[in-house]
């Protein structure tokens, strides 16, 4: 019951694989990811990281995966959410994933806001 969807991830400068060369900085990169109705955004990102591009930066090294640490915040289709408890939307439309604030972005999908959860109360 898996289906393939297109996931467009924001990539910041100095990101990606050196020498790949095909992707301009500060833009979206598309990945094809298998999902079902109960795949979380975090699992989508893990899939990309493990199978398609290990350089994609998102908060993954100290994540509880269950909605309690509050650190995996991203913006999915424009809305801030916890990546671990948010399922991919129903349907075949492409999904966009961005840092919750591009101004405070450290790299790719990771930003200082996810570092401190300052001003965000999502957990």
């Amino acid at each position: 019951m898996k289906r393939m969807i297109e996931v467009r991830c924001f990539r910041s400068e100095s990101s990606g694989r050196d020498g790949n060369g095909s992707r301009p900085d500060g833009s979206f990169q598309a990945f094809e990811v298998p999902v079902d109705g109960e795949t979380s955004i975090q699992q989508v990102l893990m899939y990309i990281s493990e199978n398609l591009d290990p350089t994609l930066a998102f908060f993954k090294h100290a994540a509880c995966r269950q909605g309690f640490c509050g650190r995996c915040v991203v913006r999915m289709n424009g809305k801030p959410c916890l990546a671990c408890t948010t399922p991919v939307p129903v349907g075949d439309e492409p999904v966009t994933v961005e840092p919750v604030s591009r101004d405070r972005a450290i790299r790719d999908l990771l930003c200082q806001a996810t570092g401190g959860m300052s001003g965000l109360n999502l957990s």
Binding site: S15, G16, R17, D18, P54, T55, A57, I106, R107
Partner: peptide, 13 residues
């Protein structure tokens, strides 16, 4: 795959 030190997921791995 990438030399960046800022949150380099492969290096943290």
């Amino acid at each position: 795959s990438n030399r960046s030190r800022a949150y380099n997921p492969e290096w943290l791995e």
